[in-house]
Amino acid sequence: MILVREDLCDFCGVCVSVCPPDCIELREAEIRIDHEACTECKLCVYVCPVETLEYVETSHERAV
């Protein structure tokens, strides 16, 4: 699962621009990932300028 560290996020939207299933929603100061739609490709993790996004292995549990 991709986790967002909201304390680091600057809401710049780079992650949104590369997301294949378009599952990231960016508002003024709020970012939401639709974990159901997310394919865990991690592209967003690679491009985040400030290491806000983190991939965490979860076998079954899907937190919100």
């Binding site: 780079v14 621009s17 590369v18 997301c19 294949p20 378009d22 592209l43 690679y46 491009v47 985040c48 300028p49 400030v50």
Partner: peptide, 13 residues
């Protein structure tokens, strides 16, 4: 189709 490829984005600070 607007999705960017990794080679086509500069990630900046």
């Amino acid at each position: 189709r607007t999705q960017l490829k990794l080679k086509d984005i500069e990630t900046c600070v």
